[in-house]
């Protein structure tokens, strides 16, 4: 569905250094990027701010031409066959809207039908379906400028999907949404991917989106991939392993068990960092033999932390 081979994109920026002097510097936004996305996959595309995610998406949609390398989407060259490709993909940029500011949402969606030449009957059917799934009903007739961010976002998703694209590209679609809107949008995307088989590429800074939705995670930093794999593989990258949180009967010094380090102590509660290969059942047995335990919980390595480490370059960069 998507094939990116050795793609680079540079920007030339002119910076003022004195009253009249300017220096031209080259920013390498994307630098030696390669990946492929098969049909039907739900890919999470992650990276710190300025990593080159939006730039990549602009090249995938044909808005920007790569400085080097080749991009193919749905078998087409995006920058040369932009309008043909546009009929087959849907795109949502979270911070921008395709909707007409002064007109009711319904009218914007009607224009989208004309734009993509969707048959009237098919349009009505899809609009009904999207209205139900995205809960658009209450504000279909409200001018877009009066919609809340979450409502507008759902309207934009509907607009991107009315022509039933094979591929949906999302650049931060959950930015600024409350938990309820987020849940609606996530549930919707999940169904779209599993029931319709729509291939989805999702960029987000919300790791909840990734954990809930993605088959595969691609992490980029400074324009290059630093991780490519599924969620368990990403967790396995963490050298921390799991954490056992125990509530002892009484506050005391850190527990003394071989091979287990105590990460933190707060009153009777202690956090034990298990090595990746440790057997939690054995640790719990050893612990309860020597201490009185009130409560305990086993925590998976926090994905936020794993990703933060990747961003900081703690984990050695390598494509998995």
């Amino acid at each position: 569905m998507i094939e990116v081979t050795d793609v680079a994109r540079t920007f030339t920026v002119r910076r003022r250094t004195g009253r009249f002097r300017r220096v031209r510097t080259t920013v390498r936004a994307v630098d030696g990027m390669s990946f492929t996305v098969p049909r039907g996959q739900f890919l999470g595309y992650l990276g710190p701010n300025g990593a080159g995610k939006s730039t990549t998406i602009k090249m995938l949609t044909g808005i920007l031409t790569p400085s080097a390398g080749s991009v193919r989407v749905c078998g087409l060259d995006p920058s040369r066959q932009r309008t043909t490709l546009a009929r087959r993909i849907g795109v949502v940029f979270g911070q921008r809207t395709t909707l007409w500011w002064d007109l009711p949402l319904r009218d914007s969606l009607a224009l989208v039908r004309r734009l993509y030449r969707v048959e009237s009957a098919a349009h009505r059917e899809r609009l009904d379906e999207l209205t139900a799934l995205l809960e658009l009903g209450p504000f279909l007739d409200t001018p877009v400028r009066q919609l809340s961010l979450g409502q507008r976002m759902r309207g934009d998703l509907a607009a991107a999907l009315l022509h039933a694209p094979e591929l949906l590209i999302l650049d931060e679609p959950t930015i600024g949404l409350d938990v309820v809107s987020k849940a609606t949008v996530r549930g919707f995307l999940e169904r779209l991917n599993t029931e319709r088989g729509t291939t989805i590429l999702l960029t987000t800074h919300d790791l909840g989106d990734i954990e809930r939705l993605c088959d595969r995670v691609l992490i980029v930093d400074r324009g290059r991939p630093v991780f490519d794999g599924d969620l368990p593989a990403l967790r396995a990258r963490a050298d921390t392993g799991r954490t056992l949180v125990v509530d002892l009967a009484e506050p005391g010094p850190p527990v003394d068990l071989g091979g287990v380090t105590v990460a933190r102590v707060a009153g009777p509660r202690q956090w034990l960092a298990l090595p990746p290969d440790a057997n939690p059942a054995a640790v719990i047995a050893a612990l309860s033999a020597r201490y009185e335990i009130r409560d305990l919980a086993l925590r998976e390595p926090d994905i936020e932390e794993v990703v933060a480490r990747l961003y900081q370059g703690v984990v050695s960069p390598a494509a998995g």
Binding site: K58, T61, G62, I63, R82, T83, T84, A86, R87, V91, F93, R96, T97, T98, L115, Y116
Partner: peptide, 13 residues
């Protein structure tokens, strides 16, 4: 502002 990105991925010129 870069909103022209929206105009550029429409399937018309």
């Amino acid at each position: 502002t870069g909103d022209v990105a929206i105009d550029l991925y429409r399937p018309v010129g």
